[in-house]
Design a protein around this nucleic acid. Structure first.
Lengths: 118, 118
DNA sequence: GGTCAATATATAGACTGGCGATACATGCGT
DNA sequence: ACGCATGTATCGCCAGTCTATATATTGACC
């Protein structure tokens, strides 16, 4: 049984993706969802039931903060990175790069196998 | 709280890593564990409690098959890719590349282009 | 005026899967 | 004899994602 609508690679990268989208400015959830989907070329469809708990968690961990906009009929909760969140993002980004390189190296042997000296 | 000894990026990539290590030839679990750790430069430490259930699952899904080697005192269960598993691997590898590119594109917008003082 | 879809946030419950702990057995060095 | 590395395995915990559902507003279409 496939469990996710996205592929499972994303499982550990959602924090990173959300933080990176927020890096370009404050967003409310629904907007973030749209932008992430667009920025990923449709690859990432962050479900509401995934996103809101995720945002709540990121806020509890103080990587982001929120404030309600009640001025319009539609209640919107805007999120922005904290300073800590911004640091977190750059650090996570660097970490991700090295892990990606690691996987890439593993895959290189599969895609372009170097004949072993026997 | 950090939950894993590895970073969480790996969560969705373990199947891929295991398959790719098996692509270079049959391995038994313990050996696979060692080789993966070495091949990743120590980044990936696949725990036994993670690996064996994972191998059983991959076998149940018929991406890999196993046979016992009882000729030595130490019982070893050797795993090898099935044909389906090999196809799976190349397909997953391609998928992973596009997801990695996707993340890379997201991150490109936030990372300072100062990787090395030149 | 009524209905429907899109916008907007939220939670509950199911399910997956990695992890630490634990178990058990063998081989080897000392 | 003892301890450590080798080797496979399972269990319970729990973090985190998904589906389904709830609620409310707005705008379009009829």
């Amino acid at each position: 049984m496939k469990s996710s609508s996205n592929s499972d690679w994303m499982k550990g990268s959602l924090d990173l993706m959300v933080l990176s989208v927020l890096a370009s400015g404050s967003k409310y959830g629904y907007l973030l969802q749209q932008e992430l989907q667009q920025a990923s070329g449709g690859l990432v469809e962050l479900q509401a039931g995934t996103m809101y708990p995720l945002l709540h968690r990121l806020e509890a961990e103080e990587w982001i903060r929120s404030r309600w906009d009640e001025t319009t009929g539609r209640r919107r909760k805007w999120y922005e990175l904290t300073d800590a969140g911004r640091n977190r993002l750059t650090q996570q980004a660097r970490e991700w790069e090295s892990y990606a390189d690691c996987i890439r190296a593993l895959l290189a042997r599969v895609i372009d196998p170097v004949p072993r000296p026997a």
